[in-house]
Amino acid sequence: MSRFEFYNNDGLRIDGRRSNELKNFESSITTTSNFANFSRNTSTNTTYLQMGQNKVLVTINGPKEPTNRTKIDSNKATLSTNINISKFSKVNRNTNKSNLPDKQTLEWEYEITQLFSTIVVLETYPKSTISINVTVLQQDGGVLSAIINCITIALINNSIQIYDIITAVSIGIVDQKHFLLDLNHLEEQFLSSGTIATVGGGDQVSLLRIRDKFPLDLIEEFMQVGLQGCSVLKEIITKQVKDMNLNKLVEIQ
């Protein structure tokens, strides 16, 4: 048993949330081309998501012509993901000298590319590439879910056609009976946990990732809690994207 009481008798967690309460979710967009820069197409949008203490920045390049001719697919666009976890993102600075990504990041990159290849309407953009650049500035628990949510918002902000919104959320299990939604870093460290991503907030699970030892008889309830969290998150994202783009519209006019 760990020395922390993750879920007390009053139904409160370490940070004072209820078991099914999500972290503070706040997204914003920085549009910088507020004048016609005729020489270059710098309509760069940076989408910034703050999910609890996770801080993620996503920029999307494209759809554009690929620099490498071998990457051209004449039927649809190719998607590539690049995740950069900054050295200062944790409390203790990562002293690794090289800037090469570690194995987990590479795995995430692959998974996210696979996930979004099915969601983006790639057939609309033949012979082009869409590259997603993710920068993680600060990590709390559930970074993967924050990255996925931020990419979804960024795709919408960049007007790239998608079939539906993908939302992701992390879930942990306490004492084999309580399910905690949207973990913070302490909970993630000590509990068996997993991440669920669903399409459109419905009951279609598109990504499931479970770490550590996991009691399989609990998986049904685990999925239920996750799906519920995802559908709530979908509503939040839809609302925030609408508000954001209304603000953008007001700024342009």
Binding site: T32, N37, T46, Q53, K55, S86, F88, L137, Q138
Partner: peptide
């Protein structure tokens, strides 16, 4: 704006360059 660092800044320039 980063609370696990001793000091931090995010600067966004007009041309889209972002420095953290």
């Amino acid at each position: 704006f980063l609370n696990n660092c001793n000091g931090s800044t995010r600067l966004v320039s007009q041309d889209g360059t972002e420095t953290i």
